[in-house]
C-alpha cells in the first residue's frame, strides 16, 4: 500500500479563480502543480489524502405532517464513508414530532459526527 501511485486533477473550490491543480502521490511524497496559492496547495493535498464532506440526507418519518425529515452530519466526514452512512440512514425511521437540531444518530459509522435534524416536523394529529 505504501508505494501506491496516484495522480489526480483537482479543481480548487476555495476562491473564484478555480485553479486546476495536478497532484501526484508517489511513495509517500506528494507533488502539487498548478495551485496559485498556499491555501490551494493544502486543499489539494487534503483532497488526495483524506477528502471530507458534509453529508445531508433524509430519514423517513412516521405520523408526521411530511413523510421525510432532512438531516445532516454535524462535522465533515471522510468522503469514502458517504455511502456507508447513507445506507444506515435509509434504514431508520423516526416518529413525529421532531424538533430541529435533535440528535438522530450519535457518531455515525464511527466518524465522530452526529446526525441531526435540520428542521422540525409536527405530528399529524
Amino acid at each position: 500500500m505504501g508505494i501506491e501511485t496516484k495522480n489526480k486533477a483537482i479543481t480548487c473550490i476555495l476562491c473564484p479563480l478555480g485553479c486546476k491543480i495536478d497532484v501526484l502521490k508517489k511513495k509517500g511524497t506528494i507533488i502539487v502543480k498548478g495551485a496559485k496559492c498556499a491555501k490551494g496547495k493544502d486543499y489539494a493535498i487534503k483532497e488526495i489524502t483524506n477528502p471530507v464532506r458534509v453529508l445531508t440526507a433524509t430519514i423517513r418519518v412516521r405520523n408526521g405532517i411530511l413523510p421525510l425529515l432532512p438531516v445532516k452530519t454535524t462535522l465533515s466526514i471522510p468522503k469514502k464513508q458517504v455511502f456507508t452512512c447513507l445506507k444506515k440512514l435509509y434504514q431508520l425511521e423516526v416518529k413525529a414530532p421532531v424538533k430541529m437540531g435533535t440528535v438522530i444518530v450519535k457518531s455515525i459509522a464511527n466518524t465522530n459526527s452526529d446526525i441531526i435534524s435540520t428542521r422540525g416536523i409536527d405530528s399529524k394529529h
Binding site: 458534509v54 445531508t56 432532512p70 445532516k72 430541529m100 435540520t118 428542521r119 422540525g120
Partner: peptide, 10 residues
Amino acid sequence: EDLTGPEYAT
C-alpha cells in the same frame, strides 16, 4: 455559518 436550507429558513 454553514447551514442547510431548512435551517436557514427556520
